Amino acid sequence: MESNEKHQGGAFVSFVLLDQVEFSFKQLAADLQKDWGITLEDTDIDNEQQSLICTIDGILATVSLMPAPVPNDEAIQNAHTNFHWSEAVAVAEAHQAHLLIAMLPHDQSSIDTGILMVKICASALKQPTATGINTLGSVLAPDFYIHYAHTSLQEGDFPIMNLVFFGLYSRDEGKTICSYTYGLRNFGKMEMEVLDSEQEIGSILELLVDISSYVITSDVRLRDGETIGFTEEQKLSISFSPAYAIDGESLKIGF
């Protein structure tokens, strides 16, 4: 059975959490220029509607101030998945407003669209009212997001930590570890999982990060029944079946 990569990439959407209904679009424009050399026109910002609508390199980018929490307690629910950040749930519970940030590509690649999303979100997160970002099925800390955005993009690397979330959990009280990706579908790729591994947590995460970066940047299609490895000796099995930690189906990496 082939994975056949049936999920197509497309629009990118994220929500920047705010602790009050306050955000400066003028400051965002200044930060985008300073951080990434992105120049906005005065007409791109609608102060009355508290929104930004512009086209950057052919990608329609929108940022809208929403004077209420993210609907349906989505941010609070997603915050529970972030094992990196102990304050994620409290921050999600406390937010009073949010920015709805969306990138809508025309013919641009999902990689270019995702990178533009990262740049705009990273600059928006610099403002004092920004307390977190609800994205990739989780809630990430501003300093985490900003650090990986600048570190990766300034070195010419793909910002994998900003565009794919790597979750961890155990099904046997910590005897073994499971991990999953959330975000590969945005690039037309299947999500991946490692189930009940006896390897160290760091090794599991490093493996999924490396494979995720590889399939996105090299546009690789993994297939059921094949193997993958990063050394001549490493041959990890690939299987395709219903997912455990996420919706739909996933590729299981034997590790």
Rank of each mutant, 00 (worst) to 15 (best):
K175F: 13
I146V: 15
I111E: 12
L100C: 03
T135M: 06
L100P: 01
L163T: 13
I146M: 01
D112G: 07
M117K: 14
A94E: 06
R185M: 04
P105M: 09
S110M: 11
A130E: 02
I120G: 08
S109C: 03
A124H: 03
N162Y: 00
A124L: 06
S203E: 15
L136I: 04
F158S: 02
S152T: 10
P142K: 04
G183S: 14
I120H: 04
R185H: 06
H106V: 11
T131Y: 12
L168G: 05
L125Y: 07
E193K: 15
S203M: 12
A92W: 07
A130H: 03
L184T: 04
E155C: 12
R171M: 10
E173V: 03
H106G: 14
A124P: 05
L104A: 07
S109D: 00
G174H: 03
Q199L: 15
D107H: 13
K126N: 14
V118F: 10
L168Q: 06
Q96G: 00
S203T: 14
L136N: 04
L100F: 02
S179V: 11
K175P: 02
L116T: 02
M161V: 02
E93L: 15
P105H: 09
H98R: 11
S152I: 05
Y182A: 08
L100M: 03
P159V: 03
Y182N: 12
S197Q: 15
F187D: 14
E155F: 09
I204W: 00
G114Y: 09
E198F: 12
D157Y: 06
D143I: 13
M103L: 05
L140Q: 14
H98V: 12
K175G: 13
S138P: 02
R185F: 00
N134I: 02
L100Y: 01
